[in-house]
Design a protein around this nucleic acid. Structure first.
Lengths: 145, 145
DNA sequence: TTGCTCCTCACGTCACGTGAGGTGGC
DNA sequence: TTGCTCCTCACGTCACGTGAGGTGGC
């Protein structure tokens, strides 16, 4: 919670997230990343929040294999929520707070379903491979005897 | 083990594997699929073995997120093994059998490592999401009280 | 001021999608 | 024979990679 925000250049953001400047610019171009702050019209400056956003994008992209359009839709709700949350953290109205929390819960549930489905597919493949491995090793033992 | 092989057309192979004819042709073009039997120079005919091959390709492609070049290398050894296996199932030489089985074991181990790594990444993400969900739900309960 | 990183085109690539126009097989 | 599926170009698309030529900031 420091007062001075850490300002990052596009190359630094890229390195911290395992991407490239070109990828960052592309994500901005298609609206997946909010347009970075541009001092007087030249270099882009990023914050810690951008690092987290890009890390989330990269993780879901790689682990779930979603297209960037699908990812946009998945993260859109989250982005809207984040904005609302800021506004409404100021208010203390319990109805508003409940609504925001319920939306968050639903959004997390959606992601959880996707992740669980993938994990189960991978577990199935893993078990099949482990099974194959067992059979091959049993045959090797039989040969050794 | 029937004598008559089931002959499949490219559209049937595609549907059975969740792909498209264009994808099948592309995989043949880049050498990921062996060129299908071509009767007199026109339609391609496929067998059950092709179905299994494409299913394996698709599964590894989607679950591991490998490029088709990486997949080629991963499956190359397996293809070579399959051929050797046929030759050597005829011979009964234990040294040859041992060598083949050991190669198979190594190859399966490689795939298992990739699959386990992915599975663990997904589990980590799943736990983080489950954690988030818990926190949101706790806040909701606090509001309800 | 020098050197590195940044900037914007713009063309290239990978893994296919999508017609266009024509031929094969139950 | 008719209709569907197949065939081969060949251009389009998505998600960037890769220079080319030029400007910004510690």
């Amino acid at each position: 919670m420091s007062v001075v925000e850490t300002k990052l250049r596009i190359g630094e953001l890229a390195e911290l997230t395992g991407t490239t400047p070109r990828t960052i610019r592309y994500y901005e171009e298609i609206g997946l990343l909010p347009g970075a702050e541009r001092e007087q019209g030249k270099h882009r400056w990023y914050t810690e929040a951008d690092v987290e956003r890009v890390q989330e994008i990269v993780r879901l992209r790689d682990l779930l294999g979603l297209s960037l359009e699908q990812l946009s839709k998945l993260l859109e709700a989250e982005t809207a929520r984040a904005e609302l949350r800021r506004e409404l953290q100021l208010t203390e109205d319990p109805d508003d707070r409940r609504r925001i929390l319920e939306e968050a819960s639903g959004h997390i549930a959606t992601q959880l379903e996707l992740v669980r489905g993938r994990r189960q597919e991978l577990e199935k493949l893993e078990h099949e491979l482990a099974d194959k491995q067992k059979k091959v090793r049993r045959k090797l033992r039989e040969l050794g005897a």
